[in-house]
Design a protein around this nucleic acid. Structure first.
Lengths: 257, 257
DNA sequence: CGAGCCATTGACAGAGGTCAAGGCGTGTGG
DNA sequence: CCACACGCCTTGACCTCTGTCAATGGCTCG
């Protein structure tokens, strides 16, 4: 199938702060990849076209701030690669709200409401982010009920994700959050107790919403529950004991119900 | 204007647990009031009719549990009168997530996703709650784009409400949350520092997500910032000092941006 | 080999919960 | 009209979770 998209439609007009990120025109390969994302895969070429007009890709190294709370929501953001931390500040405190991976959209609610961002975002890894002008999203939603449904589904998913994060923060201690994280990792890799951490411990600490120091102590404490740590390699030698501590709960841990 | 609705359409078929609440048929007056809620005021009679079919009103005294997390989302709930606390439990802890007043919908996300509730709800005051079968909501959304938009707006609003609550919990201490609450109350009543608490302190504690004991101590501590308490009557004698402590932040405190 | 980042460890402090006891007000029954 | 009970709020003592600050150890990379 030939690619029907001419590249100049997807050029970003201005790259506001070149010091901190690089805005890219998309090449054919990028566009093809984006076309396949489930959010867009079922829409017509015409609407896809309309949506991506003046969209752009942002490629950022770690620790680059992408959006700032309080700014108007110009773009819908979609993480294509890497890791993005949603955080929030007030009264010179700073707290991680969520950590997002490839496939996640963020600040959809602000885009739909045409309001300001309530959270800031920064990269934690090298990341590639697709930015779609907020107006395009709203316009295509008006004319394409199917896309509107997709967006609502996405918003709903994000909503429930936030609820889950909120619950986990309020109902579990940092130690328990770590224990549950390890249990989830173990199930995903279906390994029999052998885990390789996919992120460095700083990122993991943010993900669990604790300080690196606290995380370090938590790992040590989990030694009492059969968790052996050496660098990024973790060995769970007593899953039963760990679960007794963690008390996993599908209403918090299962991401898709 | 004559009321076009015949009452028997709005009868609830089964009242599952009569011990804890009373399910009511709606009378003409109820229906008329509901018709005026902004969520429904602009829709056609036909769709309104379709929506409310088999809906019912639930009238509950304080401390009655209305929904339980993990149950399938059968009904969209709308608070018509009173106060509802959304809470969540795990591992025999129990935490307040949100407190809702008249006009709020809840568990819209679960209804749209046709999934289970992620939070439980209980009344804090005598409350009147409208329950609309989840299927009706989804059906009318399919055929009435305007209503669909209204629901999306509502979901968006709720989403941002949760983000705000989450932020407030993570970025402010209990003392600061109380201080900001008093400042907000003062602005709403536009009184010059004279506030009358609208809820008892137990409810207020839940709303601020602290224990009653903590709240009591927090009030005492606010004495240092010019807050004088006698029962439900509060006097703010040094708003400047209170604000210096509270550091109000529109991205947390303003409910409608 | 040194610079620097990351992780660990120790000492400490503060926020906020728990438990138990006591005070205050209000409504009901004698 | 008084007394008592019950619910709510307050107060004190205490403890745990978690953050902060500072020092150190280890690893990587130029």
């Amino acid at each position: 199938m030939t690619n029907i998209f001419t590249l100049d439609k997807y050029r970003f007009p201005v790259d506001h702060d070149q010091h901190y990120h690089r805005g890219f025109m998309m090449n054919e390969e990028d566009v093809a990849i984006i076309r396949e994302i489930s959010l867009f895969s079922s829409m017509s070429d015409e609407h896809f076209d309309q949506l991506l007009k003046l969209s752009h890709l942002k490629q950022s190294p770690p620790q680059v701030q992408i959006i700032t709370e309080g700014d108007p929501a110009d773009f819908l953001h979609i993480v294509l690669e890497g890791t993005v931390e949603m955080f929030s500040s007030s009264n010179d405190r700073d707290t991680t709200m969520l950590v997002l991976r490839a496939g996640s959209t963020f600040i959809l609610a602000a885009v739909l409401k045409d309001a300001v961002y309530l959270m800031s975002a920064r990269t934690l890894d090298d990341s590639k982010i697709l930015m779609i002008p907020a107006g395009n999203v709203r316009k295509v939603m008006e004319t394409d009920p199917d896309f509107a449904r997709t967006m609502v589904t996405e918003l709903t998913k994000n909503f429930r994700g936030v609820i889950r994060a909120f619950k986990e923060r309020k109902l579990r201690t940092g130690l328990e959050r770590l224990a549950n994280y390890l249990i989830r990792m173990n199930e995903q890799t279906s390994g029999r107790g052998q885990i390789m951490l996919t992120e460095n411990k700083r990122t993991l600490a943010a993900l669990l919403s604790v300080t690196p120091e606290y995380l370090s102590r938590a790992f040590k404490k989990l030694g009492e529950y059969g968790v052996e740590v050496s660098g990024k390699r973790i060995h769970l030698t007593d899953l039963r004991a760990l679960k007794r501590l963690a008390k996993p709960n599908p209403l918090i841990d299962k991401r898709d119900i």
